[in-house]
Design a protein around this nucleic acid. Structure first.
Length: 256
DNA sequence: ATGTCGGATCATATCCGA
């Protein structure tokens, strides 16, 4: 089974890219973030012709998450309870014999911005919510755009950026509390030393210079980590394809 | 070079968020 996460940065702008990727990689289960559309605008029928059912938690213009599945999928949660005012950023479904959650963490903007403490509170709420979810003691995946560099190795320049957004001790402590609830970072488990990134700013030639961050993660319970065969950051799909503009995030996928 | 995107609007140019 192939599971994946991808921040598409606007599904309507990325639809051709998404279809090409689905055809080439054939994932079974995909968490998508930053749809930037309402559920009514979601291209259900087009994706059905590609072999995918979808559950969607959307909103106008911003945020929005969805789960695509080649197999039957049942939504069990839309939205992070208590944090709804921060937008449509969480969805959970049962599919493929596991609980699959995808999240889009608030960006936080910078450490002095009012959104920064709100981001920390959102992460604390997520940790508490996931502990409740995982108390059911079943196979679970939590994936998405965490908007955190989990460790110095996950940044192109920790020395320059330490203490700035994505690189603070406060964010890393909230992230540690999430994984300490019983989740493993599949990419880091499979590639303990790799300096690989999943996001590169559109500006300043960041992608050709490989000035990126690893913000997009597949977390899973230990029973799933035991089944892990490979994990890959799909850097090819951060590249322009013909005249199509890529998302600023690459997909990440794992084979179980 | 804070150099680019996607989406919305008091729209065909400018803003906001990332």
């Amino acid at each position: 089974m192939r599971i994946a996460t991808w921040n598409v940065n606007g599904l309507r702008a990325r639809l051709e890219f998404l279809v090409l990727w689905l055809r080439e990689r054939r994932p079974d289960l995909v968490g998508l973030q930053e749809l930037k559309l309402t559920e009514e605008q979601f291209p259900h029928s087009l994706l059905e012709t590609e072999g995918y059912r979808a559950v969607v938690h959307g909103q106008k213009a911003w945020n929005g998450v969805a789960i695509l599945s080649r197999h039957p999928v049942t939504v069990t949660q839309k939205g992070l309870p208590g944090q709804e005012e921060f937008g449509a950023r969480l969805i959970t479904a049962d599919a493929g014999g596991l609980s699959f959650t995808t999240i889009y963490c608030p960006n936080g903007k910078d450490v002095g911005h009012p959104d920064f403490p709100r981001k920390l509170a959102w992460l604390e709420t997520l940790a508490t919510h996931l502990r409740g979810l995982h108390r059911q003691d079943r196979a679970a995946v939590v994936c998405g755009d965490f908007n955190i560099c989990p460790a110095p190795i996950d940044s192109w320049n920790e020395g320059l950026l330490r203490g700035t957004i994505f690189h603070t001790a406060e964010e890393r402590a909230r992230f540690a509390a999430i994984v300490e609830g019983g989740l493993l970072d599949l990419f880091r488990r499979f590639h303990p030393e790799a300096r690989s990134f999943s996001w590169w700013d559109y500006r300043a030639g960041a992608f050709p210079r490989n000035q990126g961050l690893r913000l997009d993660l597949l977390l899973a319970t230990p029973d799933i980590a035991e089944r892990l065969r490979s994990v890959e950051i799909d850097r090819d799909y951060r590249k322009k394809k013909d005249d199509r503009i890529p998302s600023d995030h690459a997909p990440v996928f794992a084979d179980l």
